[in-house]
Amino acid sequence: MSTYISIAVLLAVALLTVGGLYLVARYTAVAPDPLERLPFLSGWEPEEHALSRYHARWYPLTLLFLAFDVEMLFMYPWALVVAKDGIGAVVEMFVFLGVLMVGVVWAWREGALRWI
């Protein structure tokens, strides 16, 4: 039980420290309220809001990542049973990883890892 109390205490201390800093800064800063300004554009004014549909050209990479990341879900429990299940577990996992790696190499040859 004390395990999770410790984590809760840590969280509380961290949040209080951050909150405390903001409080202290209200007194130490030249003015307590934030200044609202136009975003920095090398000295020009924005023609539109920056928040927009950002064109992430590496989106094929994110799919590749997702496939591998889901695999990690199995990797953690697997780590606990390797010793018990012996070489069979190793073969199963690495055949699976090998298949995924073939996929990565294929995606690489298709150019998914280059986007500029």
Binding site: P46, E47, E48, H49, A50, S52, R53, H55
Partner: peptide
């Protein structure tokens, strides 16, 4: 300030331009 508008990109998709 207006919102960003779309424009065609090199892959033929319409993407917001800044």
């Amino acid at each position: 300030i207006p919102l960003a508008n779309g424009g065609p990109d090199r892959d033929g998709l319409e993407m917001d331009v800044l």
